[in-house]
């Protein structure tokens, strides 16, 4: 008997949108090398959270003509923390810095098709990390 695995199809803790972003996170680093290169070339980097609390988020942005051209991220946390950072990285692309700064946790939760109440705090960190990255970029200018 050879085990070839099992497709998770019975029940899922979150929305389908969370599922999509948790199992196939967007705009991530594929290797340590890619991360190192990006760290050196990002226009702005922001990190929030603490390992002791169980959530840490880091956002990297590249800016062109006042708009966010690229966004990459790393997250230590639960499924909703990972999915919320992933979806945020898609939401910000093409936005002006002013628009990006206005993104609220509520916007992220809405984009994810909702989160359980006890998980809402996870998504709050993503927008904070993004704002820090923008401030980091603006400080460099």
């Amino acid at each position: 008997m050879k085990i070839i695995g099992y497709k998770q199809d019975k029940a899922w803790l979150y929305s389908n949108k969370v599922k999509e972003h948790f199992f196939n996170p967007k705009n991530i680093f594929k290797s340590d090398q890619e991360l190192e290169d990006y760290k050196n070339n990002a226009d702005g980097i922001g990190q929030v959270g603490s390992p002791a609390c169980g959530d840490v988020m880091e956002m990297f942005i590249k800016v062109k003509d006042g708009k966010i051209k690229e966004c990459r991220w790393r997250t230590f946390g639960c499924a909703s923390a990972i999915a919320s950072t992933s979806i945020l990285s898609e939401m910000v692309i093409g936005k002006t810095l002013a628009e990006a700064k206005k993104i609220t946790p509520k916007d992220i939760v809405k984009a994810l098709g909702g989160l359980p109440a006890r998980k809402i705090h996870c998504s709050i960190l993503g927008d904070q990390a993004l704002r820090k990255a923008i401030e980091n970029y603006e400080g460099k200018k």
């Binding site: 998770q8 948790f22 169980g54 499924a79 998980k119 996870c122």
Partner: peptide
């Protein structure tokens, strides 16, 4: 983080539990 490990394992048909809770 434990929940992420648990849910990735679940996706592969492996059912475990974690000590932490949100």
């Amino acid at each position: 983080e434990g929940e992420s490990i648990l849910l990735y394992l679940d996706h592969k048909g492996i059912l475990v539990s974690t000590g932490s809770a949100c």
